[in-house]
Simulated assay, not measured.
Amino acid sequence: MESLNGIVGSIKILKFSERPLLYFKLDDQSCLIASHSLNFMADVENGMRIAVAGVYNSRKQFVVKKYAVIGQTKMMMEFTSMKSM
């Protein structure tokens, strides 16, 4: 398994299902995530720094198996902004 880290950009939902398939760019690398994709949508937004682990598929896309947000997740930021009101 390989690992990458960088800034997230261009998040798109490719397939709606019980386990959605998401596409995103990590710096200039194309990435896909299906496992934990609902958590990913709740935790990550464009411009956030994350670390991912996974494998490359035949189309040179990085298929993410695990991810971690570096810093605060989107939900944490929303919670702290609500708390300060």
Rank of each mutant, 00 (worst) to 15 (best):
M1V: 02
E2Q: 12
L4Y: 14
L4M: 11
L4G: 00
N5F: 14
N5M: 11
G6D: 04
G9W: 05
S10A: 08
I11L: 08
K12G: 01
K12F: 10
K12Q: 14
L14F: 11
L14H: 05
L14I: 09
K15Y: 14
K15N: 11
F16G: 00
F16P: 00
F16D: 04
F16W: 10
S17L: 09
E18G: 08
R19T: 12
R19N: 14
P20R: 06
P20Q: 05
L21H: 05
L21S: 06
L22N: 01
F24W: 06
F24R: 00
F24E: 00
K25C: 04
L26C: 03
L26N: 01
L26H: 02
D28T: 14
D28W: 11
Q29R: 09
Q29D: 02
S30I: 06
S30H: 12
S30L: 05
S30A: 14
S30N: 15
S30T: 06
C31A: 10
L32I: 10
L32D: 02
L32K: 08
I33H: 04
I33A: 02
S35Q: 11
H36P: 00
H36F: 15
L38V: 14
N39K: 15
N39E: 14
N39F: 09
N39M: 10
F40K: 01
M41P: 00
M41G: 01
M41T: 05
V44M: 08
E45D: 10
E45T: 12
N46C: 07
M48P: 02
R49L: 15
I50F: 08
I50R: 01
A51V: 06
V52W: 10
V52Y: 10
V52A: 03
G54N: 03
Y56M: 12
N57W: 12
S58A: 14
S58H: 10
R59V: 05
Q61I: 06
Q61L: 06
Q61M: 14
Q61W: 13
Q61K: 08
F62P: 01
F62E: 00
V64M: 04
K65A: 08
K65W: 09
Y67G: 01
V69H: 05
V69R: 03
V69L: 06
I70L: 15
I70R: 04
Q72C: 05
T73E: 12
T73D: 11
T73F: 12
T73L: 13
M76K: 08
M77G: 04
M77P: 00
E78V: 02
E78C: 01
E78Q: 11
E78A: 07
F79T: 05
F79E: 11
T80C: 05
M82D: 10
M85Y: 13
M85L: 14
M85T: 07
M85N: 11
